[in-house]
């Protein structure tokens, strides 16, 4: 008689492998578009900024945030909406699998898929815009913490939207609002006061600040606040999506 369920770590490993296996058929195009969008943003916004100024650093770091946060959010939203529409969520719910592990596995798989985009954007941006990179070891913590909160929001969008198409539209809308309502691509000094005031509510603001510190330096005490906010939003969004995921009903 086989055991009835696997330990959590083995469940997680299987779920990550399942997601990677699903992604293998489309990973090249996903990586390519994931790289192109932030690189084009870097080049186009960078062309309008003065070389050697804080503006180009903001453009470069903002583009890295785009790779990490919004690409993940949109991909995760589409994936959950697709799994819901196709009955995959129902099928997985009938296996002895914890729902939170499915969320973490999905987000982790898409995070891994976004890393090439981060590396290419940072390297190419530094080369073309002449931004001196000063990579901090804190990047190991900052990069996943930037990706996870919005991936969680993407998952919420995916499971609550009626169709995959609706999920895609809502997710893009959320991305646009969060990118332009804060100092993500555009430095804080160039934003109007009301945008700066509202930007404190956006996780993208804290992500941009954290990325700026760990990629271009210097790392300051502000990083602790950024990480705390990102960790808080991450925990909240992942808990929320886990609780809202259509799953076995008690």
């Amino acid at each position: 008689m086989p055991p009835e369920a696997l330990p959590a770590r083995e469940q997680l490993l299987d779920l990550v492998l399942i997601q990677f296996s699903n992604l293998r058929w489309a990973w090249t195009s996903m990586v390519l578009t994931g790289v192109l969008m932030p690189v084009l943003m870097t080049l186009s916004f960078g062309a309008m900024a003065d070389r050697g100024s804080d503006d180009v650093t903001a453009v470069l770091c903002g583009s890295v945030v785009l790779s990490l946060m919004f690409q993940n959010q949109n991909n995760v939203a589409s994936n959950f909406a697709y799994m819901k529409a196709m009955g995959t969520l129902d099928f997985l719910a009938t296996l002895p699998v914890r729902r939170h592990l499915l969320v973490v596995a999905t987000v982790a798989a898409f995070f891994a898929l976004s890393l090439p985009s981060v590396v290419v954007t940072a390297a190419l941006g530094a080369l073309v815009l002449g931004v001196p990179l000063s990579l901090s070891p804190w990047a190991v913590l900052v990069l996943p913490l930037c990706a996870l909160p919005l991936a969680g929001i993407g998952a919420i969008v995916g499971i609550t939207a009626r169709t995959p198409e609706a999920a895609g539209s809502v997710s893009v809308l959320v991305s646009l609002v969060l990118v332009f309502l804060g100092p993500v691509l555009i430095p804080a000094s160039r934003l109007p006061g009301w945008v700066l005031a509202t930007s404190h509510l956006s996780p993208a603001t804290y992500a941009a600040s954290a990325v700026r510190q760990v990629l271009a330096g210097p790392v300051t005490a502000r990083l602790a606040l950024d990480l705390a906010v990102l960790a808080g939003v991450c925990a909240l969004s992942l808990w929320w999506v886990g609780a809202r995921l259509p799953w076995r009903q008690g």
């Binding site: 399942i18 296996s21 699903n22 196709m86 009955g87 995959t88 129902d90 099928f91 009938t94």
Partner: peptide, 13 residues
């Protein structure tokens, strides 16, 4: 359980 939808297995082999 075998659901009615035959697309539930997503893109696994």
């Amino acid at each position: 359980y075998m659901p009615q939808s035959s697309a539930a297995l997503n893109r696994l082999t």
